[in-house]
Design a binder for these strands. Structure first.
Length: 460
RNA sequence: GUGAUUGUAGCUCAGCUGGUUAGAGCGCUGGUUUGUGGCACCAGAGGUCGCCGGUUCGAACCCGGUCUUUCACCCCA
């Protein structure tokens, strides 16, 4: 006999966890639907050629590859093995597990371009897999909840992303969080005005760490990446600037005055905020983070990231606009914007904050219990009537002592026990016992149903 | 991929510088109570000390490897 175990970085979800996860998942799904997104699903596995090269070298490393079926070594010769893992890989594996939902979505759009009506709004809630080392808030299998719009560059989409995030967090009762927003064009502009045009990539990587390692270290890293000291110093007014959204916009207008792209980014942000105002919305929780970069290189416009404050979990949601997502699959000119909720991280955040609602579990309301075979038969006849009345009910399936049956009810947080014995059969009643209060009364089945149904709304 | 860290009963953890039959709390099973849960009391079951190897008269404890856990880096939700 072997001890069973799970692959590294994967987890089981028990009933309580699932109730809580569904609470989060349902909230997100409900929100996506309210904003007009349609659900799709794609396969867990994709052709490796669809996945590789989309996430950079690092990303390729983190892809789970699936060994070919049958004799996966049949195409491999000794010379392949000598050429190393990479040379051999393509001969033993042609499929992989999806790494995110965005690339499969791009593939989906390209393959279905003739069927889809653009702009196309889709959401997708499915697990993804990454072969990196698990740590806090990081798993090898986790869910993403993506919503994307493709085929429009309207900034309404950006504004609505803010609204969806706020709706979800409000429903989940998460109050202290920031929606950090920036624009890739602003970052490009910054690289231009400090005299390091074209080096926005390294700039982003370094500047993104500002929160974590501080301005001093960022300067060191920039210097290492061949940024002129003079250029680095030009960043400091930006780093040191403090103010609200409006002040920051004004500052950027000034700071980026010589960069056409940069100013365009500022305009886009301004317009996005303008749309929110036109919808009668405010900018609560919105923070313009002028140095927010995010890793993914395909973002070209707005960038989002959501951080819950005072918890040890990293960002719980992120996204942005990409001008040419489908280009790699041969379909140019499709602009899109999307974002994703990380359910597993939101779960961790809510657990850390201890803000899950008490009764997320909507379990059995009535357990039918019985003393003997006769009572059991009687209970069976009542079970159907309870269920017809819409009451979640079950019968204790075995002959067992009443103690054990009631214990089962208590442990499963079942509100009522309906006890069936000789006396009850005699009087055609059941002994309905409220297990929370201990109050018990003999009622006809119809009266018992009424009592239970009256009780349910109170529970909420 | 780099550097640390963890593993003892179902769960949370004790277990001294290596030395008899490895302990506790909670949980579980049964009983006190053969028509009534929670509370109390009593009794009981349950461990190849992650796995493999080494050192030793002797290893839960020391050493090596491996897997796992957690954490940081890289990167990311």
């Amino acid at each position: 006999m072997q001890k069973p175990s799970l692959p590294k970085g994967t987890r089981d979800f028990g009933p309580l966890q699932m109730a809580r996860r569904n609470f989060i998942l349902d909230t997100i799904k409900d929100t996506f639907q309210l904003f007009g997104y349609n659900q799709i699903e794609t396969p867990a596995m994709e052709n490796l050629s669809t996945l590789t090269g989309k996430y950079g070298d690092e990303g390729d490393q983190l892809l789970f590859k699936i060994l070919n079926s049958g004799d996966f070594l049949k195409n491999v010769g000794p010379e392949d093995l000598q050429n190393g893992a990479n040379a051999t890989l393509s001969k033993v594996s042609e499929k992989g597990l999806r790494y995110d939902l965005t690339v499969p979505f791009a593939r989906f759009v390209v393959m279905n371009r003739n069927e889809l009506t653009f702009p196309f709004k889709r959401f997708q809630i499915q697990p993804v897999w990454r072969a990196d080392r698990p740590q806090k808030g990081r798993y090898r299998e986790f869910y993403q909840c993506d919503a994307d719009v493709v085929g429009t560059d309207s900034l309404v989409c950006e504004a609505e992303i803010v609204l969806m995030i706020r709706r979800v967090f409000s429903k989940l009762n998460i109050a202290d969080y920031d929606i950090k927003i920036n624009n890739r064009k602003i970052l490009t502009g910054i690289s231009e005005v400090i005299g390091e045009a074209g080096k926005e990539g390294p700039l982003c990587v370094a500047i993104d760490k500002l929160d974590k390692i501080g301005w001093e270290k960022v300067q060191e890293e920039l210097a290492q990446r061949d940024f002129q000291n003079e250029s680095i110093q030009k960043l400091s007014p930006l780093i040191n600037f403090t103010g609200g959204v409006q002040e920051k916009l004004d500052f950027l207008k000034n700071f980026l005055a010589s960069s056409e792209v940069g100013l365009q980014g500022v305009e886009e942000l301004k317009d996005t905020f303008g749309i929110l105002q036109a919808m009668g919305e405010d900018l609560s929780h919105v923070e313009l983070d002028m140095v927010l970069a995010r890793g993914l290189s395909y973002y070209t416009g707005a960038i989002f990231e959501v951080k819950v404050n005072h918890v040890s979990i990293g960002s719980v949601s992120g996204g942005g606009r990409y001008d040419n997502l489908t280009g790699v699959f041969g379909m140019d000119g499709v602009s899109g914007v999307g974002f994703s909720f990380g359910v597993d991280r939101i779960y961790d955040v809510m657990e850390e904050l201890n803000i899950f609602p008490q009764s997320t579990a909507q379990g059995t309301q009535v357990l039918l219990t019985h003393f003997d075979q006769k009572g059991y038969r009687y209970a069976l006849s009542i079970l159907t009537r309870l269920r017809s009345a819409g009451i979640v009910s079950e019968i204790y399936p075995d002959q067992a002592k009443m103690k054990k049956q009631l214990d089962y009810a208590s442990k499963n947080q079942i509100q009522f026990a309906a006890i069936c014995g000789d006396q009850e059969i005699e009087s055609q009643t059941i002994a309905l016992k409220n297990l929370e209060t201990g109050v018990q009364e003999n009622l006809g089945v119809e009266d018992a149903i009424k009592t239970v149904l009256e009780f349910i709304p109170q529970k909420g």
